[in-house]
């Protein structure tokens, strides 16, 4: 029997909902795909038609959170933020939306979308990383609200984005174990990390300008 695209989408959401409940209740490692299939009322084989692995399930949950976060972030932009504030807001809203999945999502995200090429898996995890970094790249490219007109825009290199992702994963790691109320200490760390990142970008750009503007040898 063929099922409609609508029914398929509904099934997918139902699986995700049940999986999230089970992960929260029993933890990621203690929950099997069989448990999820049973809770959803489908055969285990059918589950694999939707998600190849348990990790993919978590990444799909993360993806939904990040999309919701992105929408909220864009809607709340005031247009006067500095680059570090924009980066902070973007990451902070993402973490807030991810809060419901704290305790397991970060592990999957860290290992699945880590910055180490060796561990990198393709597919969902890589797509999430690339989407996140695309937004970051755009945010860095926007004019700094506090800079004088005509100020040099920041243009991140691949290495810069690599540094950003490393910082973000570091914050994610801290966030996972942050026991302060509503993870307020993570907010402080995130704020400082984004400032550090922008300072490093500005510093690199400045030194590259100095080199370019220096006397021509010979």
């Amino acid at each position: 029997m063929r099922i409609t695209a609508k029914a398929k989408a509904e099934n997918r959401m139902k699986i995700l909902r049940e999986a999230a409940n089970l992960f929260k209740k029993h933890g990621f490692s203690q929950t099997t795909t069989r448990d999820i299939a049973r809770a959803t009322g489908i055969a285990t084989g059918t589950l694999f038609n939707y998600f190849a692995t348990k990790e993919d399930l978590v990444l799909a949950l993360v993806d939904i959170c990040f999309k919701d976060a992105e929408a909220e972030f864009q809607q709340r932009r005031r247009g006067r933020e500095t680059v570090d504030e924009l980066l902070f807001a973007h990451a902070a809203v993402s973490l807030r939306h991810l809060r419901a999945h704290r305790g397991y999502a970060e592990d999957v995200l860290r290992t699945g979308a880590g910055s180490s090429r060796k561990n990198r898996v393709t597919g969902e995890a890589e797509r999430i990383r690339v989407t996140h970094l695309d937004t970051v790249k755009q945010l860095i490219g926007v004019s700094d609200g506090t800079s004088p007109e005509g100020a040099q825009k920041l243009s991140p290199t691949g290495l810069d984005l690599h540094l950003y992702w490393t910082l973000f994963l570091g914050v994610l790691n801290f966030w996972a174990g942050d026991e302060s109320p509503y993870q307020e200490e993570t907010l402080a760390l995130l704020d400082q990390s984004m400032k550090l990142f922008v300072e490093s970008l500005e510093g690199r750009q400045k030194s590259s300008l100095e080199v370019n503007d220096g006397p021509i040898p010979g």
Binding site: T82, F88, R96, P181
Partner: peptide
């Protein structure tokens, strides 16, 4: 001062909503 985005997250964490939704004319 702390930038507004940080502040917004703090207020949301403490009072459950963004400052601009809780107050009128909240100065950033």
């Amino acid at each position: 001062p702390m930038h507004f985005s940080l502040l917004r997250e703090l207020v949301r964490g403490q009072l459950g909503a963004d400052p601009e939704d809780l107050f009128d004319d909240f100065e950033t």
